[in-house]
Simulated assay, not measured.
Amino acid sequence: MITILNNIMASNRFSVVDVDLTDNSVEFILYKADSRKRQEYFLIVDLSTLSGEELRYFLEQTSQEIFEDIQNSGKVELYFEKNCTMIICLNTSVENQDMILALEEDPYNFKKNVVRYSAGELAALNGYLTRHSVTAITNDIINDILNANGGADFLEFKLNHKTGSQLYSLITRIIMKLSFLVYSPREQKLENLAGQIEAAIPVGLTETFDKILTTEWTDEAVIANVESIWGGRA
């Protein structure tokens, strides 16, 4: 999963910041936005191999040590302190929901977002990328996935999560956790309503219809307009 997130970061104008940590027990990569207008960092970590107790220790101790190591590295801007989000990869086999909530609601050091995934979801996403020869997971690619088949498949997923696609389940979770990704529903082709109305009007009533549309219908002029258009047969 961390490989997928690394691809997304690199494909959406984020660059790796090379920093060393005193604790190498956790796999991590720090990213900084390339644009100066986006003052933000993302720290990607994979905690799927940790036990419940190890997750608790990470929350209470390790995350603060990582924060201090990066802050004191001399390789980050001043805004790192307030504008860094830790994205935590966590396999769904980790069933401690209370701990997951504790990770995301922890107010100290990093803002923390947990991206949960299953082996089936990861296989579905990797399968899509392989079939469509996708090497860079840009925001456009993510929208292509969600808008496939005119968006009908994604709509079905939203209406029925239990039988929905594992691919959409993972993609929507990623979008919700990475603030720079934006879902853009594909615009549906609108029917030409005016054309349909005109086509439905009998030939003999076309002139009458045009007069109805072009007449100014104020309260005072209603009776006079009706008499004018329908020849006094009102």
Rank of each mutant, 00 (worst) to 15 (best):
F28R: 07
D144Y: 06
T214A: 15
K177H: 11
K82F: 13
F42M: 11
E60P: 01
R233N: 14
N12C: 08
V134Q: 11
D18L: 09
E227A: 02
I201A: 02
S133P: 00
V16P: 00
D20C: 05
K112N: 11
K75V: 08
I2R: 09
H132Q: 12
E68C: 03
E187G: 04
T172D: 12
L21V: 05
D219C: 02
V114I: 15
M9K: 06
M1V: 09
H161C: 01
T85E: 13
S15E: 03
L43A: 07
T208F: 09
S165P: 00
F58M: 09
E53M: 01
R56A: 14
G127I: 08
E60A: 14
N109E: 08
H161G: 05
V26W: 05
I137D: 01
K32V: 09
L59A: 05
F209I: 02
I145V: 10
K75S: 14
V19E: 06
H161E: 07
A124E: 12
R13W: 05
N109F: 15
N24T: 14
M99T: 11
N113Q: 09
V222F: 07
R131N: 08
T92C: 01
Q64E: 13
I100Q: 09
T22E: 15
F42I: 04
N109G: 03
I212H: 07
A102I: 00
A10S: 11
G127Q: 09
V94A: 07
A148M: 13
V17Y: 06
W230K: 03
T22L: 06
E27Q: 14
W230S: 10
V134G: 10
T138Q: 04
S179M: 00
G150W: 06
S165L: 02
L50F: 15
Q64N: 15
L190E: 10
P202A: 12
I87W: 08
F67Y: 15
T218P: 03
G127W: 00
N160E: 08
G232N: 12
D34A: 03
L178Q: 04
D219K: 04
F157Q: 02
G164L: 04
V45S: 03
E68N: 12
D34Q: 09
L155D: 05
D140W: 00
K189M: 09
K111R: 05
F209A: 13
F28P: 01
Y108C: 14
N126Q: 11
D106V: 00
A148N: 06
